[in-house]
Design a protein around this nucleic acid. Structure first.
Length: 410
RNA sequence: GGGGGAAUACCUAAGCGGCCAAAAGGGCCAGACUGUAAAUCUGGUGGCGUACGCCUUCACAGGUUCGAAUCCUGUUUCCCCCA
């Protein structure tokens, strides 16, 4: 009847991998021990607002951690922040884009989100809650009561608020409420452990306070480091365009992985694969390119199959590492007027009135002058923007290495 | 409620009557090098035209000027300070 949990020390070893901070560290062991002794799974919380949709590798860091907890026999509890999403997320500090989502949109996002999460977490064994279930029922008096539990000084212990306060930048009231709501979720679902990034520390600690006030066992925060994106500097994020989405085709993932700066491979191995760390270390001591291929294959395999991963790697080696032509070259029709002429100036062909490889004729002209334009299987350079190109069906046109197509004469 | 300040191209940011399509950096694109890593170097980075050129752009709408991103008026948005 009791779930057969692995020994506490073994669990700890798995949980600690790729985790930046556990607060408070000692309590985690106690929780695990208690769970082990009583055969009760721990309730592991992870919450997200269903605003954006594309789940990328950065999101999978805590999700993978949740999966590890599941595999150890614990209870996954996913919070969909449908209520907080309705209000509009203020911590999207980049832009003040405040297009308000409708309830339907949020619900659709939530479903879509869960579909993606299901690739990492075993949803059949997870509890899923929407925080609108409780926040939607609150009266204003309840909200005030909740606010009465948190002081401004407490809020200001949060580093980002403190920083903004020091720098005299705006802090809005509803932003202050955000961590409170997030913390209240923990009370509602009685979480034992909460997963998330280190930037969530404040909310996680606040949740402990609130839980204690409600005579509940306080949760332990297990925080992952922020995964850096493909630029190797900033966090992986959709708006930064430096991400690998988990729904991308294997070959797309492969290409992106190979562009990853060497310096961050170590982190990727630790956070995104199960590969024992000493093996990763050995790999990294060898040729970085080989290590990168292994890394890419390991991750791709999680979302597709080993064969898919190998195929993607081989294809990358052939087309990009080697000199083979890309396997799928898009065909592009030439507008009728140009087709009738038979020959076209090179810049027009590449430009927006031709194949559209460049967004303007000026750009095409510059590209050609810079030596980026090539023609045919042998990549014969075009040097003069005004060079007349004879149109023929199937002619391969290159605008740099990454943009290319075949002429389709119909 | 009162006072002060700001809005410039993808971002930061100069410019404060003509020499401004607009400095500089970042980013991005392309080329060399390479392992489509990093570093480095080179060129490019509003549109149209081979080019002297033309057109659109400096929050928005008007105005003053031969001429405005630069001056004036109004509008909008944002920030700060005082109460």
């Amino acid at each position: 009847m009791t779930a057969p949990f692995p020994p506490v020390e073994d669990q700890l070893r798995i949980i600690r991998r790729g985790v930046e901070k556990i607060v408070p560290e000692e309590e985690l062991r106690k929780l695990l021990q208690h769970s082990f002794d009583t055969g009760t799974p721990l309730r592991v919380k992870y919450g997200i607002d269903p605003t954006g949709i594309d789940v990328h590798l950065g999101h999978t860091v805590p999700l993978r951690k949740m999966r590890q907890f599941q595999d150890l026999g614990h209870q996954a509890v996913i919070i969909i922040g449908n209520y907080t999403a309705l209000v509009g997320d203020p911590s999207g500090r980049d832009e003040a884009r405040s297009k308000r989502l409708t309830a339907d949109e949020v619900e659709e996002n939530a479903r879509d989100y869960l579909n993606q999460v299901g690739k990492v977490v075993d949803l059949s064994k997870a509890e899923i809650h929407r925080n609108g279930d409780w926040f939607g029922k609150m009266e204003f008096a309840d909200v005030l009561a909740l606010c009465g539990r948190v002081t401004v000084a407490q809020l200001l212990t949060r580093e980002d608020f403190a920083k903004r306060y020091r720098e005299e930048k705006a802090i809005y009231l509803h932003e202050c409420l955000y961590p409170v709501m997030q913390a209240w979720d923990s009370v509602e679902i009685r979480s034992d452990i909460e997963l998330g990034g280190t930037e969530q520390l404040y909310s996680f600690m606040l949740a402990r306070d609130l839980q204690t006030q409600q005579n509940l066992r306080a949760q332990v925060a297990v925080m992952s480091p922020i995964l850096v994106g493909l630029d190797g500097v900033r966090r992986m994020g959709k708006s930064l365009g430096n991400y690998i989405g988990i729904s991308e085709p294997p070959y797309e993932m492969m290409k992106k992985f190979m562009q990853l700066p060497d310096a961050v491979m170590n982190m990727y191995f630790e956070l995104l694969t199960e590969l024992p760390l000493d093996e990763a270390k050995a790999l990294l001591a060898g040729h970085p390119k080989e290590a990168k291929v292994t890394l890419a294959k390991q991750v791709i395999t999680q979302y597709y199959s080993g064969e898919d991963a190998t195929a993607a790697a081989d294809r990358w080696q052939a087309e990009i590492g080697g000199s083979a032509l890309p396997a799928d070259i898009p065909e592009q029709e030439v507008p009728a007027e140009l087709r009738e002429q038979g020959t076209v100036a090179a810049f027009v062909l590449l430009g927006k009135d031709g194949l559209g490889l460049c967004s303007s004729n000026g750009e095409a002209r510059r590209l050609i002058s810079g030596g980026g334009a090539k023609l045919g299987e042998d990549k014969i350079p075009i040097t003069d923007p005004n060079q007349q190109i004879e149109l023929q069906d199937g002619l391969l046109v290159w605008a740099g290495r990454k943009r290319y197509c075949r002429i389709k004469m119909q």
